[in-house]
């Protein structure tokens, strides 16, 4: 890529402290994600997919500096933000925003929509007058397709899809360059989900925003993403442009995951063969040695049991963490 990335993450690791259950005993730490590296170009969407507990939300939170990285660097728009503090961190926060999953619990029920959307402007000292704030809020409401009179109402009078639009308007208020969207449509009904996905795509086209789109729904991710990263047990196991991931998956886990997605076509769905890897997802408090997928992997060899693979280049922009399989 010739364009400088908007976000560049390399070697990211995040640890969580586990309580040992007993007083005075040494706390154990849990390695939630490790060795995570990816870039997002300006105006690009990277889909981050994985099952529950795979660490995708942790990656999103680390990128936003809501939790600190144990290892690795996060470079945002050319600046290393991994250890940023104080006022500079505060200023950075206006440029990267989050959209959360549940539009029912992420909006303050006692604030009007206008106040919810204007709050970030006020916090960051960008609202010069009440009049100007009203104008900006009205513009944002129009931008996300909400009626003008929405400003003076409270969240409870809106449907799920409309609430997610409010959340998006709030995220847009500070004109961010990057939005981390953590399962933004998984709480919405099918027909409404399409509205929000279309809105996010329109906003990206008009405002050149980069998205880190975190989700477990592979079909939605395929639709919205330019590139896709698949996570398993705290590691990225494969990352590639979306056509390559969906048409020519390399990692055995990606293959199994894709084959498990039910597709809305009865004739195809009945004859599809699911690629089954026995066993349950790993307990990341006690991960297996070597490649974390090896206990379930049909291709596992001695090397996989001992040595964890890094993301290896398998084709032009196609990386997979597998010793045994090539493009």
């Amino acid at each position: 890529m010739t364009v400088a990335p908007m976000l560049s993450v390399s070697g990211l690791a995040v640890d969580y402290q586990l309580s040992s259950g007993a007083l005075f005993r040494k706390h154990r730490s849990l390695n939630a994600v490790a060795d995570v590296s990816f870039d997002i170009a300006p105006g690009e969407t990277l889909g981050l997919v994985g099952e529950s507990g795979s660490g995708k939300t942790t990656v999103g939170r680390a990128v936003l500096r809501r939790i600190s990285a144990a290892k690795g660097t996060i470079v945002f728009d050319g600046e290393d933000i991994t250890r940023l503090k104080g006022e500079r961190l505060r200023r950075l926060r206006s440029r990267m925003q989050i959209v959360l999953q549940d539009p029912y619990t992420s909006l303050n029920p006692r604030m009007t929509v206008a106040d919810i959307i204007a709050e970030p402007l006020i916090v960051h000292g960008l609202a010069s007058s009440a009049e100007e704030t009203r104008v900006v809020v009205a513009e944002l409401l129009e931008r996300v397709g909400l009626p003008r009179d929405a400003a003076d109402r409270y969240p409870h009078s809106f449907s799920g899809g409309q609430r997610q639009r409010i959340g998006i308007a709030r995220a847009l208020a500070l004109k961010p360059s990057l939005i981390v969207a953590d399962e933004p449509v998984s709480a919405l009904d099918v027909s409404v989900r399409a509205q929000v996905v279309n809105l996010m795509q329109d906003l990206q086209r008009d405002l050149d925003i980069s998205y880190l789109f975190i989700a477990h729904d592979l079909a939605i991710v395929r639709h919205i993403s330019h590139r896709v990263a698949i996570m398993y047990a705290g590691r990225i196991v494969e990352i590639a442009p979306r056509a390559a991931i969906y048409n020519r998956p390399i990692h055995p886990y990606t293959e199994a995951l894709l084959s498990a997605v039910p597709i809305a076509n009865p004739k195809l769905q009945r004859v599809r063969r699911r690629i089954v890897h026995p066993g349950e997802a790993v307990d990341i408090a006690n991960p297996p040695s070597g490649c974390r997928f090896h206990p379930r992997c049909p291709l596992a060899t001695e090397r996989c049991r001992n040595e964890a693979p890094h993301l290896l280049r398998k084709a032009a922009e196609h990386f997979a963490a597998c010793w045994n399989r090539d493009a």
Binding site: S159, G161, Q162, V190, S191, V192, R193, A194, Q195, V197, N198, Q201, L218, A219, I220, R222, H223, Y246, L258, V261, I263, A264, N265
Partner: peptide
């Protein structure tokens, strides 16, 4: 019709999903 068309698949190359406006 709208429900089926607003569901993205794993192979189609649709540019835009059909959204059923409103609630």
């Amino acid at each position: 019709q709208g429900l089926i068309r607003s569901t993205p698949g794993l192979d189609a190359e649709e540019e835009r999903l059909t959204a059923i406006e409103g609630a």
